[in-house]
Design a protein around this nucleic acid. Structure first.
Lengths: 346, 346
DNA sequence: CGTTAGCACTCCGTACCGGCGAGTGCTAAC
DNA sequence: GTTAGCACTCGCCGGTACGGAGTGCTAACG
């Protein structure tokens, strides 16, 4: 992997990658020697290109076509050659004002982030809203739907509203529910769902040899309300951007990509990968064993409020993506969203 | 519009439409005379086809290609020729069991309906959730996000959870909010949002010459919480099915269609059309001045619980859609969802 | 008079061909 | 080590030829 390349080879590789990103067609030696001020003849460039091909950074679709970077080539480019410039303050301002979050629900914010991400990058935007278990409790409410069926509404510190239906053998009266609600809303704020779960488990253990029937049931209800994971929300924006990419002209491939973009589950898996790490991460092509998005790259970054509430946002597009443009956008947006999550907390 | 066609012409038109639906290629006289037991020679069929073309039911892409039904042809076919068979009870059972609604949130139900609709029809499924103003009040909750910013959570009789953020000059205390919440939750259940709005407007009028400051503010808050429309939710499922249609091979057209499918606003307009009427409605091609979905047909039907909560669901696909299959599916599903909305109400 | 067989015609799709251009690899000279 | 030159490869493009599917028309048939 870590082959050494001399400066000239690096320059040429960079030039090829950049030309290919711009044009989507195989690039030849002439073009490189002319457009880039390398002061090298096409012949020399050809020699270097032959070496690069042998090392696996390039490949040629057929003799007498130009060269195309391989995934390995893209990798090397991104890891070693690409210089990610900071966003100029003008661009930062433009991005910041693109986001109109006034009076918006958190759900709308997530969706809007996806939209802007897609609009600015010209690729497809993805946002994975903060995981339920990582959010900080603010308020809970119960709504009795029918005997034995309860709707639980959960509001996180960041203003994210989530709800689910639970079935309970006990048919709770309005008063009982109110008591439980009040108790939970008094004791739980500030804790993450994970912490609450641990605490509830503790209490259940302590309680089990005592005989306060009502309290036992209340505990059970609380556990049911908070124990199961709530399915994560994913927001996808600008899928039609995928259709603009010349490399996806084959309807078959396009269908695969769209199926992936439609499948919440697959997207969650994809975005979860980058949850753990910090800062912008890049997944190129099928490296991520998700063969379904072969030919695609994902640039993503986690975001999070001060206390938990970890989500992921990113941009997905063809491998031939404009990394130098998109990376700072994703980075900046992730920071921006983190700030918004905090602001929401007051 | 209402030209008279003799039985033979009708038979031939029907045969052409059906063949075209099945094959997506222009159909010729040979095929008709052979496949369908009409006992007519190709030459005769040709004569009839020429007539049908003159009347505007058919057109030929060029000489020596077969004929393709025009929108007018499809219209006539659907209005006069198509016999919509009821779903057999086996199919009904299959559909019913496809829907696994146990322990699902209403949002999930809507999404699942779209998915099944798409899966069974092989086209793209659409669901427009019940409009806020048409839903019946069940419960409301306020969450204080930050000074002056309140999150309002609204649960409808059918278990649909909606929320929005309102800004209020008054910084409400927890106690005040609780009082207001209790009052609203005691007096409003059973009324539709529309009715509530009228009632609130009345009260505001009565109140304005009295001077109970707190009550005035509480009224204002309630109005703010319920007055503004909450944006409708649309669920789209199976967009990748569009890519399977041979007539949408042009990437340009495909992009337009996907942009429309991505635009909540446009979908809402589209689905709103059929809200007013009862039963299944069919919009063919660009008849609906939505030129953006040229080449597409929409089969939709409103659904509703016993009291209000009117939504729309449907299937969108190429004009060359399998109407006889899809129409009963949409019809049955709409009835099914209506029943579910009622069941939710207890 | 409606229906049918026959026939000439049209036009698409495909395959085949040859020239052009872009690009390569190799070699020899600088 | 770099470069100029050259033969070679191969995809792309335009032109042409051909087969097939389908039509419209006409004349014959019942």
């Amino acid at each position: 992997m870590s082959e050494e390349l001399n400066t000239r080879s690096q320059d040429i590789l960079a030039a090829i990658v950049e030309d290919y990103i711009a044009s989507a067609v195989p690039v030849g030696s002439r073009a490189i020697s002319r457009r880039h001020a390398l002061k090298l003849s096409p012949a020399t460039v050809r020699n270097v290109m032959a070496d690069l091909e042998e090392m696996g950074f390039l490949c040629s679709p057929h003799t007498s076509a130009g060269r195309v970077p391989t995934s390995k080539g893209f990798h090397y480019y991104i890891d070693s050659l690409l210089e990610v410039r900071e966003l100029s303050s003008a661009e930062q301002a433009r991005l910041t004002t693109s986001y109109q979050f006034k009076g918006m629900r958190m759900e709308d914010v997530m969706q809007e982030v996806g939209r802007v991400l897609s609009g600015i990058s010209s690729y497809t935007g993805l946002v994975l809203a903060p995981k339920f278990s990582s959010t900080v409790f603010r308020q809970i409410e119960f709504v009795r739907l029918s005997p034995g069926r309860l709707l639980v509404i959960f509001v996180s510190e960041a203003g994210l509203v989530q709800n689910k239906v639970i079935e309970s053998k006990v048919d709770w009266s309005r008063q009982d529910l109110e008591r439980i609600t009040n108790y939970l809303n008094r004791t739980l704020p500030g804790l993450t769902v994970q912490e609450i779960r641990a605490q509830l488990a503790d209490e259940v253990r302590q309680e089990q040899d005592r005989f306060d029937q009502l309290r036992k049931q209340a505990l059970q209800l609380s556990k049911a309300a908070l124990d199961e994971e709530i399915e994560d929300s994913v927001y996808v924006a600008g899928t039609s951007r995928m259709l603009e990419q010349p490399e996806f002209s084959s309807p078959e491939q396009m269908r695969k990509i769209f199926q992936t973009l439609e499948s919440k589950q697959q997207l969650i898996e994809l975005l979860d990968q980058s949850q753990a790490a910090e800062g912008v991460q890049i997944f190129i092509g099928s490296q991520s064993q998700h063969s379904s998005i072969e030919g695609c790259s994902l640039i993503s970054s986690p975001f999070s409020g001060k206390k938990g509430a970890i989500g992921t946002l990113g941009v997905i597009g063809p491998v031939r993506m404009n990394y130098s443009q998109v990376i700072p956008i994703v980075d900046f947006t992730a920071r921006l969203v983190s700030r918004i999550l905090d602001r929401e907390t007051e």
